[in-house]
């Protein structure tokens, strides 16, 4: 369970998150939508401690993320994240990209790590690209590789930070299919996304962020079909 309580985050004088509370239960898929600068991506970075917070608390399975005593490297093993700019390691092949962390962080043997990596890469449809360097892949393929890389750590949670925003339109579908597959497998997921119809389809709950706050939250029907607030309706009108 991810428990976010009254989190405040600022970059210098700029307040990005102004008191967000949100709980994500085990097995739940929560989508976060909202305009740019509303603090949704920053919140994801705070969940696995890639960004520090100024106030409030974030607990993952009861462990305080923003506590000096917390072993973040250990905590991050169970929180996978996929970035907007897939961030493949360019000097490693697709297979090596996926094997790296399981070997060097979890201490798996080469054979063990390779077995897991091949399984994950097959799962995302890249079984024929194992020995290829990421530079030779399309954006959609690199993003699917990034998903496999995160999954190879067998995380309990997956965070997606606008995973399809930087892709050419014709490549969005293949990545969404992969994410849909994960959701169906029961993975606990937090998605920051602009794909409203996808959010509606896979989410248990949708949160609309505005000005660093959760403006509206509820089931996809409540928020996306019959929003309570004018701002939510305006936002939806602008993206659809």
């Amino acid at each position: 369970m991810i428990e976010i309580e009254n989190v405040h985050k600022s970059f210098g004088d700029l307040d990005v998150i102004k008191g967000v509370s949100l709980t994500v239960n085990k097995g739940e898929v929560v989508s976060i939508i909202g305009g740019s600068g509303s603090g949704k991506s920053t919140l994801l970075m705070c969940i696995n401690g890639l960004e520090v917070i100024q106030q409030g608390s974030i607990r993952v399975d009861g462990t305080e993320v923003h506590n000096k005593a917390t072993d973040l490297n250990r905590l991050r093993q169970k929180i996978g994240i996929v970035f907007q700019q897939w961030n493949a390691f360019p000097h490693l092949t697709v297979l090596e990209n996926v094997m790296l962390a399981p070997r060097k962080v979890l201490g798996q043997s080469r054979a063990e790590a390779e077995e897991v990596a091949v399984r994950q890469l097959t799962h995302v449809g890249l079984a024929d690209k194992l020995k290829v360097f990421p530079g030779k892949l399309s954006g959609g393929q690199q993003q699917r590789m990034a998903i496999a890389r995160a999954l190879a750590m067998s995380p309990d949670y997956m965070l997606f930070d606008e995973a399809t925003s930087a892709l050419d339109p014709q490549l969005v579908g293949e990545v969404l299919d992969t994410m849909r597959m994960l959701a169906e497998d029961g993975m606990t997921m937090v998605l920051v996304t602009h794909e409203i119809s996808f959010a509606r389809e896979v989410s248990d709950r949708v949160a609309f962020f505005r000005n660093g706050l959760v403006h509206e939250i509820g089931t996809p029907e409540q928020v996306l079909v019959s929003p309570q607030y004018a701002e939510t309706a305006d936002f939806l009108k602008s993206v659809l």
Binding site: R76, F83, V105, A150
Partner: peptide
């Protein structure tokens, strides 16, 4: 690249 590696627990 740093972020991606750290996010994997490295």
């Amino acid at each position: 690249q740093m972020r991606a590696a750290r996010s994997l627990g490295m």
